[in-house]
Amino acid sequence: MSSFIFCYGTAYAQEQKPKNDKETLKKEYAKTPFYQGSSVGVEVAGVIGHALGSDPISSEVLLQCNLKNRFMPALEIGYAKMDVTNDDSEMHYNTSAPYFRVGMDYNVFYLKPYLPGYLYVGLRYGFSSFSYDVNGPDMKDPNYGDITIPYSYTGIKSKAQWAELVIGIKVKIFKGFCMGWSVRYKKRVSAENGENTEPWYIPGYGENNTSNFNLNYNLIYNLPF
């Protein structure tokens, strides 16, 4: 990925620049049609991360349309699975569920459509309705002798909502194909707790912390309509 950045930077430095003073660019931009096309993408960092040893596996499909080369409403539909046992605590947690995000990106370089890529910032609202299983070793009373209570809860239903702040880059690779990567700061809005549990991992959000960071890597195809 970093070699691509380097190559791209070098190629760009050698590029012949068209007339691009701000006034000309603004005049050109004013002629831009409202609808600029749509794109479909797939997120692959969740699968690559799992292949490299990370516990969760996730992937998502991205649908996005381009309005005035500036505003880009986005819909992301994904599926995540987490099935893990902690070696120390011997607790086991299992969930797999779809998640949804809606939001919009803003093209910071909207005046420069001649560039082979752009930097964007965006917002998302994320939502997942999921169920999870938690089980672990029997709980032993630490004070009053030999009382043990089993700990096993399955099919606990929960819902979670969160907001995301996105900063990313999208660049053309070949014809209608692009790739993009983004850093996301996620802030939990709500997560329903069970009577005996709190969801430890939320599909689409990650571990149930008050906030999370993660990286998305998308392969995108610009639809020809």
């Binding site: 902690n86 120390d88 605590s89 607790m91 947690y93 700990y151 809860y153 549990t197 709190e198 430890w200």
Partner: peptide
């Protein structure tokens, strides 16, 4: 019995 975090047990 209550669970909050995989690292911490019950």
């Amino acid at each position: 019995p209550y669970f909050t975090n995989l690292d911490c047990g019950t």
